[in-house]
Write a protein that binds this DNA or RNA. Structure first.
Lengths: 128, 128
DNA sequence: ATAGTGAGTTTACAAACGTAGACAAAGGGA
DNA sequence: TCCCTTTGTCTACGTTTGTAAACTCACTAT
């Protein structure tokens, strides 16, 4: 597979916005990110253009106004980074990761229940 | 808590070496990383010195030779990055992370068993 | 026509990263 | 003593990232 796009911190904030609703105009995005991150208009637009170059967002020209849409899903992006981290920090072992986390922070009842459900599902799908 | 140290990609490789055995001399480290990563002597030493500045490794002077030791454990480093990622990409939800992973790759029987064990343990420790 | 606005594009610039060459001090042999 | 090697430090340089000002073009209200 061609290596999927990886996002920087600032870029995540932009994508976050786009994932929450799209298509959006530059206008809306600069406004929202201005509030949320304290960025200037330019900052947001620069980021958007870098993301476009990377192929993480697509644009369309409606008259003189550009609209932006995400080209990668949040899942893809998240997955990409997670796999990187898993490899880098846990030699690829998910259980090692989870155990490291649980050692440091207590999981809520809900979180636990969800995790059990997920495992159960994974189990079923696995030997299907 | 004072924000723990975060490592760059290249720095992880260096720490990896140190975690696998320490204390080590610059000599050993440049050799190993030269092979493993194709780095020049300078590269490794620069990284080591940056890590020293960050406080991620400590040094000691035995005569004219320096020895290096890790100052942060692999767990600490891994945890730090994992928490970052969890926040950035999964709004802090571990179960969301795990489910995203399981959707993309099948877990082995061992991995599953380990995960169940970890959850069980977390559960017990939780309401202790 | 004129000036002000909104939108998009260019240029900028410092800090962080990856990578490494150059240089200096110290020790070991010829 | 003189040179080579070892070890450590300093300097360097291109790229990426965060952040934003400056500039330009099209449009609108006067």
């Amino acid at each position: 597979m061609e290596k999927s796009i990886s996002l920087t911190d600032a870029e995540w904030s932009v994508m976050e916005c786009l994932w929450s609703r799209a298509p959006r105009t530059g206008r809306e995005l600069t406004e929202e990110l201005g509030k949320k991150c304290g960025w200037s208009r330019s900052t947001t637009l620069t980021l958007l253009s870098r993301l476009e170059t990377k192929g993480a967002v697509g644009t369309e020209n409606d008259g003189r106004v550009k609209t932006f849409v995400p080209r990668v899903s949040r899942e893809e992006a998240a997955l990409r980074e997670t796999e990187d981290l898993l490899t880098r920090a846990y030699r690829g072992s998910l259980s090692l990761m989870v155990s490291t986390l649980t050692k440091k922070q207590t999981l809520s009842r809900e979180e636990l229940d969800e995790l059990y459900a997920i495992l159960k599902k994974a189990e079923e799908d696995g030997h299907a």
